[in-house]
Computed example of a mutant assay.
Amino acid sequence: MTRPDTASRTQTLERTRTERPRLWRVLLLNDDYTPMEFVVEVLMGHFHKSEAEAQVIMLAVHHKGQGVAGVYTRDIAETKVAQVTAEARAGGFPLRLVAEPEDEGPL
Rank of each mutant, 00 (worst) to 15 (best):
22 R>D: 13
92 G>S: 06
90 A>N: 09
84 V>P: 00
37 E>M: 10
55 Q>C: 10
45 G>V: 05
12 T>D: 12
5 D>E: 14
70 G>V: 06
80 K>G: 02
49 K>Q: 02
101 P>K: 11
105 G>R: 14
90 A>D: 03
22 R>W: 06
17 R>K: 12
40 V>I: 15
87 E>R: 11
63 H>P: 08
52 A>I: 13
75 D>A: 14
53 E>Y: 04
82 A>M: 08
61 V>S: 00
23 L>G: 04
85 T>G: 02
53 E>A: 08
69 A>E: 02
80 K>R: 12
52 A>E: 14
21 P>L: 05
2 T>I: 09
48 H>A: 15
5 D>S: 14
19 E>G: 09
60 A>K: 10
46 H>K: 04
19 E>V: 12
95 L>D: 02
32 D>K: 11
8 S>K: 15
3 R>C: 05
34 T>K: 03
72 Y>E: 04
78 E>V: 03
59 L>Q: 10
24 W>M: 06
49 K>D: 01
1 M>C: 05
22 R>H: 12
53 E>D: 10
44 M>Q: 09
64 K>C: 08
45 G>R: 11
62 H>Y: 05
24 W>A: 07
63 H>N: 11
9 R>V: 14
36 M>Y: 09
27 L>S: 00
80 K>D: 03
50 S>Y: 00
79 T>H: 07
24 W>G: 03
74 R>K: 15
68 V>C: 11
82 A>V: 10
102 E>C: 03
12 T>G: 10
103 D>E: 12
12 T>W: 14
75 D>S: 15
13 L>H: 10
59 L>E: 07
58 M>L: 01
59 L>I: 05
37 E>I: 07
31 D>S: 06
102 E>G: 03
67 G>L: 08
35 P>F: 07
57 I>C: 04
47 F>K: 04
3 R>Y: 12
64 K>M: 08
76 I>W: 00
68 V>N: 05
3 R>F: 11
76 I>K: 00
88 A>F: 04
38 F>G: 04
77 A>L: 03
1 M>V: 08
73 T>Q: 12
1 M>K: 13
63 H>E: 13
62 H>L: 05
57 I>A: 04
91 G>V: 01
10 T>A: 15
50 S>D: 01
60 A>V: 04
52 A>S: 14
106 P>L: 13
2 T>D: 13
62 H>G: 03
77 A>E: 02
100 E>W: 05
54 A>M: 03
78 E>L: 13
70 G>C: 04
102 E>I: 07
58 M>C: 01
51 E>I: 14
30 N>Y: 09
35 P>H: 02
33 Y>C: 08
90 A>L: 09
16 T>M: 15
58 M>V: 00
14 E>R: 15
